[in-house]
Design a binder for these strands. Structure first.
Lengths: 122, 122
DNA sequence: AAACATAGGCACTTTAAAGTAACTATTCGC
DNA sequence: GCGAATAGTTACTTTAAAGTGCCTATGTTT
């Protein structure tokens, strides 16, 4: 009972509006500075970027390296432990891709209101 | 670019406060009536249960079978297509489990404020 | 004829997540 | 002794997700 908590712990890492993007960027590009991440993710705000990075650091997914220079330089990268979840990301990504195809099969590529049927067409 | 959308589509299915629980219940128990689900998930409200089920039905993960009786009877179950995501759930669950262990290693089982460090202890 | 049981619907409120805008620290170059 | 960079912080506002309470339909039972 209450066994879905592992599940939910896992989801905490990936979910939210920005964590997926941040993770994928870091996995793809390797080490990135704060400003690079910000440029790579145009719509994210400073607050959101730092906040999400902090959470990822806390979860030991992302490493934060501060260089005591001026102007400041902080580099982010996926930790060795974090790299272990690459396959999880891959599985999710693959399933997401095939699911999008499935939705297109079901509803056609035309009217794709996939998230939720607002009220049910009555 | 914007390639993480598959990823996010996948996450839409699992995320939210109730979808994981509902899915795990249905996977574990097979076919369940609305009321059974409600009893199995004590804190969910009717509104939330119907809402989340509707979204799962829309995504072809859950099948909804209405029996035209009185009092009404509606049964929910995982669709054949939905069963195809069992391995995704398993991967997430397993990773979540090992991640919880990893967090315990890092921070000890004592003070487990895992989600986010509220303000950083200054 | 009133109450019950099941599977909802609807309007409104609360809470949590995200967004905005303005501020800070440091030091180099001018 | 002022502005430019970089990587933030802080207080406040907006938006989205979830929760609350009460309403509905319809045969069956009492």
């Amino acid at each position: 009972m209450a066994n879905y908590c592992k599940f939910e712990k896992a989801l905490e890492i990936f979910t939210g509006k920005w964590k997926p993007v941040i993770l994928l960027r870091l996995f793809a590009n390797g080490t990135m500075r704060f400003g690079e991440l910000q440029k790579a993710i145009p719509d994210i705000t400073q607050k959101m970027l730092t906040q999400q990075l902090r959470e990822l650091v806390h979860n030991d997914i992302v490493h934060r390296e501060v260089y005591p220079e001026v102007p400041p330089k902080v580099e982010y990268s996926i930790t060795e432990y974090g790299k272990g979840m690459a396959n999880v990301l891959q599985v999710l990504n693959d399933w997401g891709e095939s699911h999008m195809a499935h939705m297109d099969d079901l509803y056609g590529e035309g009217r794709k209101e996939e998230g939720a049927p607002a009220q049910r067409p009555s």
